[in-house]
């Protein structure tokens, strides 16, 4: 068993509500998401912590709490988080835009599509270009593209926005684009392209492609996932994605073999 003592939800809620100890708030925000808390105060308190992002300058500790709160709001899938998270897509802070996009992908509300698409519309050389003096791209393209795929609302505009990123110089961005296009169109050619990335010489790319395939639920990827040169624990995460979407007992058999 894990070593952590079970924490009391009431205590966690109190920790998030106070403001003198940001590290207790940080942990509380994480905890509520991890435990899928249904406490009536959880969502309002998590939303409250986002206010710290509006201050100038932003307090770095309270920014950390807010980033954890954004992640938790995604996990809790509360509709109340939709508008605040969409507003955060306009933040000047790259990480805030990135986490907001990821959580909007989890909320799966089509109302978020336009705001996400707008950040990608300038294409691979602008949104997908590198920031000067940094390894970051100008926009958090991977998170944005994956969110469009996870929300699952297919339209000509969305497909046209994602398509150029299949040619992006970075393999993880290409993988995100293939993943989203597979989710949105169901066309196996995108799955085949992702499967080929399981042979990439870099372990990071293989892991990314593996998790992307799992997220699509495309069961044809099962044997390639099982055979990939990646840690068994990640293969199990990917196969879980296939199993939960397809409910195919063959996928469970493949998981049993990896335990």
């Amino acid at each position: 068993m894990a070593v952590t003592e079970p924490l009391n939800e009431t205590q966690v809620i109190a920790n998030l509500g106070q403001t003198t100890d940001p590290s207790a708030q940080y942990y509380a925000a994480w905890w509520l998401g991890k435990m899928r808390s249904r406490h009536p105060k959880a969502i309002p308190l998590l939303l409250q912590t986002l206010k710290a992002l509006e201050q100038q300058p932003v307090d770095p500790e309270r920014r950390g709490v807010a980033l954890n709160a954004i992640r938790a709001l995604g996990k809790l899938k509360s509709p109340m988080a939709l508008t605040p998270l969409c507003e955060l897509l306009n933040s000047t802070d790259y990480s805030v835009r990135e986490e907001a996009a990821r959580s909007l992908g989890k909320l799966q509300d089509p109302a978020a599509v336009e705001g996400i698409r707008r950040l990608l519309q300038s294409g691979i050389s602008d949104a997908g270009g590198e920031q000067s003096g940094s390894a970051l791209l100008r926009e958090p393209c991977e998170a944005l593209i994956e969110a469009l795929g996870d929300i699952g609302l297919s339209s000509a505009e969305t497909l046209d926005t994602i398509l150029p990123f299949v040619q992006h110089p970075r393999p993880l961005i290409r993988a995100a684009a293939c993943r989203a296009l597979l989710q949105l169109t169901g066309e196996s050619s995108w799955g085949i392209q992702l499967t080929e990335m399981l042979n990439h010489p870099e372990a990071l790319v293989r892991r990314g492609a593996l998790l992307d395939l799992g997220a699509t639920g495309w069961t044809s990827a099962g044997p390639a996932i099982s055979a990939a040169a990646v840690e068994p624990s990640l293969k199990l995460v990917a196969l879980r994605g296939l199993a939960e979407q397809s409910e195919d007992p063959e996928v469970l058999k493949a998981m049993d073999a990896l335990i």
Partner: peptide
Amino acid sequence: LLAGRDDEWVVRYAAAF
């Protein structure tokens, strides 16, 4: 039986198996 009450889903999965 202990594995079936683990915090991590993958251990509970292994316990079911």
